[in-house]
């Protein structure tokens, strides 16, 4: 099922399908390894619910839900 990254719950895993948006934020996501084909594991959410922490390409990355919204992932049912 295709979902955006911000809707992932703690402990879910997804496969990156596409990255929307443009300019510097999108580029930053690419540079940090959020490219189609990468596997994302949602580790946790911050105490106030935002930002979220993911594991990608073997390291931990934090991003806001706003940015996570741009990333579409495929989640196994």
């Amino acid at each position: 099922m295709l979902r955006t990254l911000d809707t992932l719950e703690k402990g879910e895993t997804g496969l990156v399908k596409s990255v929307a948006g443009e300019g510097r934020i999108r580029r930053r996501l690419f540079d940090m390894g959020v490219t189609p084909g990468a596997i994302i594991y949602l580790r946790k959410k911050a105490p106030l619910g935002d930002p979220v922490e993911i594991t990608i390409r073997g390291y931990e990355l934090s991003l806001r839900k706003e940015e996570a919204k741009m990333v579409t992932v495929e989640v196994a049912e």
């Binding site: 510097r24 934020i25 930053r28 996501l29 940090m32 930002p51 922490e53 390291y59 931990e60 990355l61 934090s62 991003l63 806001r64 706003e66 940015e67």
Partner: peptide
């Protein structure tokens, strides 16, 4: 514009 918060959380 709010700067993005795409940040590595180092070990």
């Amino acid at each position: 514009y709010v700067s993005p918060f795409i940040m590595e959380l180092p070990a």
